[in-house]
């Protein structure tokens, strides 16, 4: 049984290379964004916070998309790897959502004038964060793998559908947060920096999910070994 979900174990070193590439891309994109953007008409230099806040939000959304895919595939195929993929993506999504909120707060203080306000965009994002904490808490409460996978797939789908509400919140309700920008509302002087930083964040996202997924698989392997050992000891006693 354990053999069925053991991945071809890739060297951790390969992940380290991917990690170094991702972080180097981030350094490059940030340097370009910081050096090549003229001050914004309204925000001045504070516009530069866009290059970390917006990519963090986008990659958090993508991480939730992986949670959704993993959860749906698990319920459909009942293969453990999809459950582990969803769990890996959920932890990364939590980190990125928390980062997005914190960066938004740092950006909001000098521009909006407040660190926080209960507007629908901020409120729905906070709810998304709490639901993700709930998802991970549920996983740690339930020890039985099949039941854990079923329940967390349901919560994972619910939480990731929430992303649509977060995304649409600025259109559905009145908010302090602006609606989505588009290429027509962002000057080319900023668009390139934003795209490159988004790309670098995408690499970081892939690196995190792969690394966390591998950890999840090894954890299951350790669990299975412990179970096998207990079983063997039990047999010895009965003989």
């Amino acid at each position: 049984m354990p053999g069925s979900f053991v991945p071809a174990v890739v060297s951790r070193r390969r992940y380290q290379i991917l990690g170094i590439i991702a972080l180097a891309a981030l350094v490059g994109a940030e340097l370009l964004g910081l050096s090549a953007s003229p001050p914004d008409r309204d925000m001045g230099h504070l516009q530069k916070i866009m290059y970390v806040h917006v990519p963090a939000a986008w990659s958090a959304f993508l991480a939730f998309f992986v949670v959704f895919i993993g959860s749906v595939l698990y319920l459909w195929k009942r293969e453990e790897r999809y459950d582990l993929l969803a769990a890996a993506a959920a932890e990364v999504a939590l980190v990125l959502t928390a980062l997005t909120l914190a960066l938004g707060s740092i950006w909001g203080r000098p521009t909006w004038g407040v660190w926080w306000t209960w507007d629908p965009r901020l409120t729905t994002t906070a709810i998304l964060l709490v639901m993700t904490v709930g998802y991970l808490a549920l996983r740690s409460f339930v020890d039985e793998p099949d039941r854990r996978a079923r329940w967390s797939a349901a919560v994972g789908i619910l939480a990731s559908l929430n992303v649509l509400v977060v995304y649409k919140s600025v259109q559905w309700w009145r908010t302090l947060h602006q609606v989505q920008s588009s290429p027509s509302t962002v000057d080319p002087a900023y668009a390139l920096g934003l795209r490159l930083n988004a790309l670098a964040f995408l690499l970081v996202l892939v690196y995190f999910i792969l690394l966390r997924y591998r950890a999840a698989r090894l954890e299951r392997l350790v669990e299975a070994q412990a179970e096998a050992r207990e079983l063997a000891q039990g047999e010895e006693l009965h003989v």
Binding site: D40, D42, W112, Q178, S181, S182, T185
Partner: peptide
């Protein structure tokens, strides 16, 4: 202050 979605030099 509510910023619009426009960013321009």
């Amino acid at each position: 202050v509510k910023h619009s979605n426009e960013y321009r030099p």
